[in-house]
Design a protein around this nucleic acid. Structure first.
Lengths: 290, 290
DNA sequence: CTTCTTGATCAATTTTTCTTATCGCTTACG
DNA sequence: CGTAAGCGATAAGAAAAATTGATCAAGAAG
């Protein structure tokens, strides 16, 4: 049965050694002198050997001299751990993995991350991007702490916090008849050369579901899609956030009827709390997007 | 102000993790389940972050998962230290430095040490030999924990525990007139070719002090001395323990008048306790020599 | 639906830790 | 030489902490 060494009495011993006396040590420790006397005596009896020479004042025994550096080492390790955990809790350190759909990753995250690293310089962030299914799977598998995506189907194991709405619109080239319009009704698209993409499932279960039958192409890759739009090969529907603003010739016209919106929000495992770093990010994102 | 982590609650956490539940852990720790619940809750509040998922049973939070290996590490280090100190106290480990006069070192210590290492296999011993002044200085300077010697002059800083008496006698070659005698009176030596040696000061302040004026030689080196005795160049006085029994032609005849004895015993710093290993040796030697 | 198990909670109690007051001893100083 | 100051030990009581026993609510198993 090996004795349990409590940290505090070890600290007392070091204080006595460093300060050269029980009184001075007590002052340093914000304790009274008898408190140290008794705590150290208790420690000695637990070890079965005196640490301080009795009679002589605050002189270490040979065994005490043997112990002191070891006590110091253990206390150092304790303090290091305590400091490390505190840093985690206070978000001065830590890391988090997150996944986001491409539109969020490329349009929202750059600015968000820039602010985040200023606010939490110690927290390292890994951001993975992929489509909504990918994000969902990553969160579900615990591969990432957080997802930033729109949720297509609920799941008891997932917790979703909506943060912003993102309305669907038509994207076409600037010389297209629809280009100057304020808004578009879905039936106006029936005659167009329609290009389907990954976000087209937003039309599912809406009045405009019939559009999905009329795709001339289906392109999942965003680069390819924009290239085709720029080439004037057709029009497509995209949520506003996914609309590539950097292409001068493309225009975004909101869909007025039906008004289709996706809800972008934070996805996480339900019933599972977040690491301090992940919570910092979740709170930060939620606050930034209101 | 960094929080003070007590070892026991950390152990509770590991027990819950390893046993997969509070009840099982409580059994292992010989505590009741509420004790663990409350201790862990207190630890959590001290850290400012939950370790276990509330609601779910004995599931770690991400922060908890982060902590567990670190807790385990600290506890391992604590236990290693505790074990190490216990080993010292129980004399299963340790070391000691001692010094002894040559006669003791060569005649007594070999057998003593052989038994000692059987009894205390973990304790390493360093044995230095030198004359009584050397031993005394080594002890006084704290260079060695223990001395095994005879004490010529007391000192408040030294503690001496007599263990055995060692009587002075005359040493001569087997063809010397005194060789067959049972004992010798000091006055019988006045006509002899007397060789003085380091132990001759035992005659100081005795009836035979006059002999010191009649030395034909003074030889401090034991090898030289025995060579001269074997060569028949004279006789000398030696305590029995210093008499080199391995020389077949030499004889030891006790001095009857005056009866001069040196007291051989343990020398140590007064008011300074011994290391566990040194105390083991001191007790061992004292018991062996009664 | 009932039963069993799990962890949480609360009050009571035991244990531990700390303080106040005091003692005996040593040291420094006039 | 004697006095005052400083030190650590000690005892008794107070405060704080840990632990228990009993009980509760919730989820899992039958």
């Amino acid at each position: 049965m090996l004795p349990e060494l409590k940290i505090t009495p070890l600290r007392y011993v070091l204080a006595v050694v460093d300060q050269g006396g029980f009184h001075a040590a007590a002052r340093q420790m914000h304790r009274t002198q008898p408190a140290l006397s008794m705590a150290i005596r208790e420690l000695e009896s637990r070890l079965g050997e005196a640490l301080f020479e009795r009679g002589s004042q605050a002189t270490l025994t040979p065994f005490g001299r043997y112990c002191v550096p070891r006590f110091r080492e253990l206390i150092t390790q304790h303090d290091r751990l305590s400091r490390e955990l505190t840093a985690q809790v206070e978000r001065q350190a830590g890391h988090l993995d997150m996944a986001a759909v491409p539109s969020v990753a490329s349009r929202l995250m750059p600015g968000l991350l820039a602010d985040f690293v200023v606010r939490y310089p110690g927290i390292r962030v890994s951001l993975h991007d992929g489509n909504a299914d990918f994000v969902r799977e990553q969160v579900l598998a615990g591969e990432v702490d957080l997802g930033l995506t729109s949720l297509w189907e609920g799941n008891a194991a997932l917790g979703f916090t909506p943060l912003m709405r993102d309305g669907l619109g038509v994207v076409c080239r600037d010389d297209h008849p629809l280009a100057g319009r304020e808004e578009v009704h879905w039936e106006e698209l029936m005659g167009e050369s329609l290009i389907g993409n990954g976000t087209s499932r937003m039309l599912q279960d809406t009045d405009a579901a019939a559009l999905r039958e009329h795709y001339a192409f289906y392109i999942s890759n965003m680069i390819s899609l924009t290239a085709m739009l720029v080439a004037g090969l057709g029009v497509t529907t995209l949520p506003r956030l996914a609309f590539p603003e950097e292409y001068e010739r493309l225009r975004f016209i909101p869909l007025s009827e039906p008004r289709v919106e996706r809800e972008i929000g934070l996805l996480q495992l339900a019933g599972r709390s977040l690491s301090p770093g992940a919570r910092a990010m979740a709170d930060f994102v939620a606050r930034a997007l209101e």
